[in-house]
Simulated scan of single mutants.
Amino acid sequence: MATTLHDPDTRRTITVPDDVAESYVSQGWVRPGTSTPAEPGLDSLTIPQLRDFADENGVSLTGLKRKPQIVAAIEKELGPSA
């Protein structure tokens, strides 16, 4: 049997064998008709995780120590859906 999956980022649709479908789902693919898995918000990350995320995305956090300041800086640079 086969499973049809959809990539919400690229809007591609593929059909894969059932035995590998879960590996695609774990990478962000979804079955058509299901909702996209919710991504955790920035508020759910720890300060070290936020600093890593900012570093990976080129956001400067120089001088910022408190979580609300860090989240605000990331959202200002990357948008509220970061």
Rank of each mutant, 00 (worst) to 15 (best):
Y24P: 00
G41S: 14
P40D: 11
N57R: 13
R51H: 12
D55H: 15
G33E: 02
K65H: 12
I70N: 00
L50F: 01
S60W: 03
F53Y: 11
Q49W: 06
E22D: 12
V30H: 05
G63D: 01
L42N: 03
S23R: 15
D52L: 14
P40E: 13
W29M: 01
Y24R: 01
D55R: 15
R31S: 03
P37Y: 07
R31T: 09
P68Q: 02
P48W: 11
D52N: 13
Q69H: 15
T36M: 07
S23T: 15
L64C: 05
V59F: 05
W29Q: 00
S35P: 03
L45I: 04
A38H: 10
A54L: 05
N57K: 11
V30P: 00
G33W: 05
P32I: 04
L50R: 04
S44N: 08
L50D: 01
K67A: 04
E56Y: 08
E22L: 09
S44H: 09
R66V: 09
D55M: 14
G58S: 07
W29H: 02
V30F: 00
V25Q: 03
D43F: 10
P40H: 14
Q69I: 00
S23K: 15
T34Y: 09
R31N: 00
G58T: 04
S26A: 12
D43H: 13
E56A: 14
S44E: 11
D43T: 14
S44D: 11
V25M: 05
N57Y: 09
D52F: 10
P68C: 01
G33C: 06
L42G: 03
D52E: 15
V59P: 00
R66Y: 03
G41E: 06
Y24V: 04
R31V: 12
G28H: 01
E39S: 15
V25H: 01
I70C: 02
E22S: 10
T36W: 04
T46H: 08
V30E: 03
N57E: 09
S35T: 12
L64D: 02
T36L: 07
A54N: 03
D55K: 15
L61S: 08
D52V: 12
L42A: 10
S26M: 08
G58D: 07
L45D: 01
S44V: 10
L42Y: 06
P40N: 11
L45P: 02
T36S: 05
I47R: 06
Y24S: 00
Q69R: 15
S35K: 15
T62E: 10
Q69L: 10
T46F: 03
E22G: 01
S26K: 14
P32V: 01
D43P: 04
S35E: 13
E56C: 03
T46R: 11
L61Q: 08
R31Y: 08
G28I: 04
I47D: 03
S44T: 15
Q27C: 06
L64K: 12
L61E: 01
S23E: 08
E22R: 12
T46L: 09
I70T: 00
T62A: 14
R51E: 13
N57P: 07
N57I: 10
Q27K: 09
S60M: 07
Q69V: 05
P68E: 02
T34N: 08
T46V: 06
S23C: 08
D43R: 13
K65T: 10
D43C: 08
P48K: 12
F53G: 02
A38Y: 09
